[in-house]
């Protein structure tokens, strides 16, 4: 089971490329973390992998199946997508949102069955938010909403999770809880591709890291090899010192 991204390029207007020349692959159970500053093209890349935006050139394949040859329904059984900062107009309950993940498994005319609701509820329980099941999705905190969406994506039972900044808009504790959850999910065999602004989070996940800057991967490899003071200075333009606290690595911005 493999996601392969080969030489992909995307441009909104055909003139300026948002990203180009990007290639990588993600194996079963692997966490692939895309780190980069605002506007580097991380989210756009993630949307292209889920065919929400169409690539200008290059190829994306899941298990050798070309992305463009797959129907939306097919693709949704491979990849689950967690959008950034989602708001809903209608106050659907958290359980109703979670069960929407069954959509690719149901025919056009079907509504979710008792079984589907049970699966959604099991995911809410796993994420520790079963008490929110009947609460309106519009009236819960940002962190809870993020978890509700994760429950929805897990109910989809995909093999790849595409998470667009899953830790932004979460408080300090919830950020770490989200990272632990990501690690647990990868241990269950899910492959996870996430974007983030925080180099510390890549250390915490000890994942494969791609450093993205101005539409290209500057470096790809282990978190320890890639997240260096020199590289951070290059993409963020600030001085950073990497320190050890109880054998965990942390990045600290310093004055110089």
């Amino acid at each position: 089971m493999l996601l392969q991204v080969e030489e992909v390029k995307f441009s909104y207007d055909g003139k300026k490329n948002v990203f180009e020349n990007i290639s990588f692959s993600v194996k079963e159970g692997e966490i692939f973390c895309i780190l980069g500053p605002n506007g580097s093209g991380k989210s756009t890349l993630l949307k292209c992998i889920d065919n929400l935006l169409s690539l200008n050139s290059g190829r994306v394949s899941f298990d050798g199946k070309d992305l463009v040859s797959m129907s939306r329904k097919d693709l949704a059984t491979y990849a689950g997508f967690l959008p950034q900062l989602h708001v809903s107009t209608f106050p659907f309950s958290v359980a109703e949102v979670a069960v929407m993940g069954r959509s690719p498994h149901l025919s056009l005319a079907a509504s979710p069955s008792v079984k589907d609701y049970a699966l959604a509820e099991a995911n809410l329980r796993m994420l520790g938010i079963e008490h929110l099941a009947d609460k309106p999705y519009t009236n819960i905190s940002g962190g809870e909403r993020q978890l509700a969406l994760i429950a929805m994506v897990l109910t989809q039972q995909p093999r790849f999770l595409l998470l667009d900044e899953p830790t932004s808009h979460l408080d300090f504790g919830n950020q770490i809880r989200m990272l632990n959850l990501i690690r647990t999910l990868s241990q269950k065999g899910l492959s996870i591709i996430l974007t983030t602004h925080f180099p510390d989070h890549a250390f915490h996940l000890s994942s494969t890291v791609a450093m993205m800057n101005e539409g290209a991967f500057m470096a790809v490899g282990n978190a320890d090899d890639i997240i260096t003071e020199k590289n951070l200075k290059k993409i963020y333009g600030i001085n950073v010192q990497i320190a050890y606290v109880n054998s965990s690595k942390v990045c600290v911005p310093v004055k110089k």
Binding site: K47, R72, F81, P83, Q156
Partner: peptide, 10 residues
């Protein structure tokens, strides 16, 4: 829920 969200859900 939104257009991209619906497409991502197949």
């Amino acid at each position: 829920m939104g257009e991209d969200e619906a497409r991502a859900l197949g």
